[in-house]
Design a protein around this nucleic acid. Structure first.
Ligand SMILES: NC(=O)c1ccc[n+]([C@@H]2O[C@H](COP(=O)([O-])OP(=O)(O)OC[C@H]3O[C@@H](n4cnc5c(N)ncnc54)[C@H](O)[C@@H]3O)[C@@H](O)[C@H]2O)c1
Ligand SMILES: NC(=O)c1ccc[n+]([C@@H]2O[C@H](COP(=O)([O-])OP(=O)(O)OC[C@H]3O[C@@H](n4cnc5c(N)ncnc54)[C@H](O)[C@@H]3O)[C@@H](O)[C@H]2O)c1
Lengths: 205, 205
DNA sequence: ATTAAATTGTTAATTTATAAACAAAAAGAT
DNA sequence: ATCTTTTTGTTTATAAATTAACAATTTAAT
């Protein structure tokens, strides 16, 4: 549902950061293309569509492109996220150190199981009934659903009701949402099934 | 890289199982379409491409279509998976109960940190140097990478060398692989960044 | 028995995405 | 100063994916 070109822009950004950390100031479409596994034409087309300009014969100025991509992706802000479900996946995400340097911040976790709320934790945790209050107080727009399949739609409804506009869903169900609420699904088993399909097909050749 | 139609077939399967558990024997393209958020024409087109036939005016026989999709997805076999990296994500996956009923089985976990290998665990764990031996002995074709970014390509190379053909990668890097080894990336931050982009764009309207 | 309604499955049209082609500009070489 | 090479950026072409159209068939209704 989300356009492919913006997804690649997100990848280019990571790649540009990598090369910048390696000490480079400029980069060619060819290099970026190789890194993320597309054609150089694709890179130039994507850049063109987002008005990211380089220099003939001299490639792209990494800092310049990064500044503009950061603008596009609203990297001037820190994006607050709440998480519903503090089980296996929930705990793993809470412990994850990688959010900060992508300007993401898990501001609170929620569960209905009092045992899960007792654990000391890097972020404040509350009973799910507190979701509307916290979302309003912290002005949060993004939520992660990490509850069992059976509870996912209900959790989703609560998030929508509270004013969340983007949901990352780990539960293996398609959530029903109004048009102004966007869902991205992460399906570990689904991806593995797709891998089985393609690798078994390759085998036959 | 993996075709969209097969990814939807995987979704249809989950949906068919759901309706079967609800007691239904037949289903219409319209219902499936609504459930996974596509048009009925898309469902019929996908089914047509995989030779999944229904009955005019009577829809699709759930059991029949399931049997055929199960064939397509090689659901007659249990697919063995190994995992490299037993940190936050690795532990969450090991504890995950949902693999079994999708015919997936985590058969071993690997790490280089002896502390991680000491923990008692639902599956056997080994030092990473044992990867080739285990892959060969168990005849594993799928691997999950859940190591830090800096170690991901090395882990990937080890898996490839050992004979793994499909890799699910949680590290935020694009892995370099030969053409016969397929990678699926799971990028939590990337998905969140995409959500920020679309939800902020919606806001402007 | 005929007609109407519903639903599939295929074909055609449209849209979107990717790839190819190439002109324009810049840098460097002769 | 002129020519060659490199690389961008746009335009054109091709391919892939989605949507629309509609004939064919089945069921049910009159
Ligand atoms: N763990 C994994 O590796 C993994 C992999 C793929 C998919 N998933 C999916 O992610 C989701 C979470 O998986 P998990 O392994 O962390 O499960 P889990 O059972 O460990 O955790 C689920 C948590 O949600 C809480 N919960 C239940 N109902 C709730 C509600 N209505 N409101 C708030 N909290 C509620 C439970 O108390 C529990 O703490 C599941 O849908 C699962 O299918 C998990
Ligand atoms: N935890 C999350 O929620 C989360 C979210 C998004 C992405 N990721 C990505 O997933 C990966 C794992 O994240 P994590 O939070 O589980 O990290 P972690 O640090 O908790 O775990 C990484 C594990 O890998 C092991 N390891 C390091 N080098 C290794 C090697 N060469 N061979 C085998 N094992 C090795 C470490 O000993 C450690 O146990 C990272 O790349 C991270 O960026 C994690």
């Amino acid at each position: 549902m989300i356009k492919k070109n913006i997804q690649r822009i997100i990848q280019y950004r990571m790649c540009l950061l990598k090369f910048q950390n390696l000490g480079f100031e400029k980069i060619f479409s060819y290099t970026l293309a190789q890194e993320i596994g597309v054609s150089p034409e694709q890179v130039r087309k994507d850049f063109s569509q987002f008005h990211l300009r380089g220099n003939k014969k001299a490639g792209y100025l990494i800092q310049d492109i990064l500044d503009q991509i950061n603008d596009l992706l609203h990297k001037e802000d820190i994006h607050k996220i709440i998480m519903v479900g503090l089980g296996n996946i929930g705990q793993a995400l809470i412990k994850y150190k990688g959010f900060a340097n992508r300007n993401m911040q898990l501001v609170a976790g929620f569960d209905i199981d009092p045992a899960k709320l007792k654990k000391t934790c890097r972020i404040p945790t509350f009973h799910s009934k507190e979701i509307p209050a916290v979302v309003k107080k912290e002005n949060v727009r993004l939520g992660i659903i990490a509850v069992p399949e059976a509870a996912a739609q209900e959790a989703c409804n609560t998030l929508i009701e509270a004013g969340i506009k983007g949901i990352l869903n780990f539960a293996p169900v398609m959530l029903k949402t109004p048009p102004d609420v966007v869902v991205q699904n992460i399906s570990v088993c689904g991806e593995l099934e797709a891998l089985v399909y393609v690798t078994e097909k390759d085998k036959q050749k």
